[in-house]
Amino acid sequence: MVLKARVGSGTGIEVLITAAAVADADWRGVFTHGETALSSVRTAGGTGLVKDVGRFGRFGWINLVGPLTQQRADWSHQSLLAMVGELAPEELRAVLVGARRHQLRRRLDEEVVRRALAGERSAVRRFLATLGDTLLQVDPWLLRTPAVTLQQLCLDTLAAIRPASDRAPDATLARRRLKDVGAARLLEEVAPGVHYGPQVLDDVVLVTSPQVAPILVVVDEVDRTVILHPPLGDEGATDAGAQLRDLGRAVGDATRLRLLQELRTGPRTLVDLTTALDSPRTTLLHHLALLRSAGLIEIAVVDGEPNVYTLRVDGFERLAQAARGFSLS
């Protein structure tokens, strides 16, 4: 199967990433601009707006990236507001709680999802229990709140958040690379250390955003995958001091060191790692994302199977080279 890809960016995407960072302190600490996002939301609406953003959770905001990028028009802030306003309230709820996500739908049939969204208690319990087997998170508030109320609060919250710039991030280089080298090679360039198995990807949307640096954010919808990635080639200075700084951040944490030590014994799934470290999945995920972005681990993604994490030996060689090349004189 030939991989199809689109490339883009937009101020609406930037607003959603800002909201996701504000809603989740762990991921705010991962994003290079996470604290800037929090400051901008506080300036725009104080603690009340910060609280409203948090109600939807990180996944609620990120899930809106899916329907926004389905539009062929620009993915601007105004387009985002128009999309949220035009969706039927119950359809918006379905998007917010991840009903379009592949991780959920491969475990839960459409009828149970429909009944859960309608508020049937047994279906809601099953829906939430199934979420526990995925990497997704949903605040039960999203299922309890009347859909019309949910839609209005979502609109008001998004309208209050201002994008950092009136212009979309520059995706010119990614578009050029797509034309020059094709979709498969471009995917390797924007997502180094992530290896997709057969039938995992056939339709992918690559979205350039400096706000997600230094990691990737992946939205796995049933019929396509959206990958939010830092600007292509935007890895900062290449001198030894900068390399040592960036790699040092990745290993300069006790939990990340424990993860690396566990992976020394061989490939591991997230379940393996949570058991070995006695830590929640949500805690480990942002640590793993940083290790992957630093080139110290790699991830194999196979449809229907847990992701497998493996040490990347050449990443440690780069760390050693950066240390040797750093001069104190």
Results as ranks from 00 to 15, higher is better:
G248E: 06
P89C: 13
L81M: 12
G98S: 11
Q70Y: 12
T238R: 10
L153R: 15
A123W: 12
L296D: 04
T208Q: 08
R42W: 12
V181P: 00
L319E: 06
Q137P: 02
G85D: 12
L81E: 10
V84F: 06
G266C: 06
A254P: 03
K51N: 15
L201W: 04
E35M: 08
L150C: 08
E120C: 13
F316H: 04
Y196Q: 05
V97C: 07
H286E: 05
P231D: 08
D26M: 03
S79R: 12
L259N: 04
G57K: 05
E111Q: 13
S329T: 14
S122I: 13
L285R: 07
G98W: 00
L328I: 11
S76D: 07
V65K: 00
L150Y: 04
L68D: 02
Q71H: 13
L150D: 03
R176C: 06
G193P: 05
L328F: 13
L136A: 10
V2W: 13
A323F: 09
W75D: 04
V84D: 03
I215M: 10
K51I: 09
I227R: 01
D246E: 13
H33P: 00
S293V: 03
H77A: 13
P280R: 02
Q78G: 12
L284K: 04
L135A: 15
V41C: 05
L277G: 05
Q261L: 14
I227W: 04
A19S: 10
G325I: 04
A44I: 07
L296I: 09
A20Q: 01
T275R: 12
L186D: 06
A183H: 00
L277T: 06
G193H: 01
G29A: 04
D246T: 09
H33I: 05
A23K: 02
T275A: 13
P306V: 03
G66L: 15
R167V: 15
R55M: 11
A183Q: 06
A37C: 14
T274Q: 02
D314I: 11
L128T: 07
G197T: 09
V190W: 06
D24G: 03
M1G: 11
G10C: 08
R55L: 15
E298R: 12
I215R: 04
G12S: 10
L285M: 09
L263E: 01
I227D: 02
F127P: 03
F56Q: 04
R28P: 00
R105P: 07
Q261D: 14
I161Q: 01
R121W: 08
A19T: 01
G197E: 10
T36F: 09
T274K: 00
F326W: 14
L277H: 00
A213P: 01
E90I: 14
A5E: 02
T130N: 12
V22I: 11
G132R: 07
L64F: 12
T36A: 14
G295P: 03
T145S: 10
T145V: 15
L244G: 09
G266Q: 07
E86S: 15
L288K: 06
E189H: 06
L247T: 05
G46P: 14
R312P: 02
A116N: 10
A174L: 03
F56I: 06
N63H: 15
A159K: 08
L80H: 09
S327V: 09
V113C: 11
L128V: 10
P146G: 07
A118V: 14
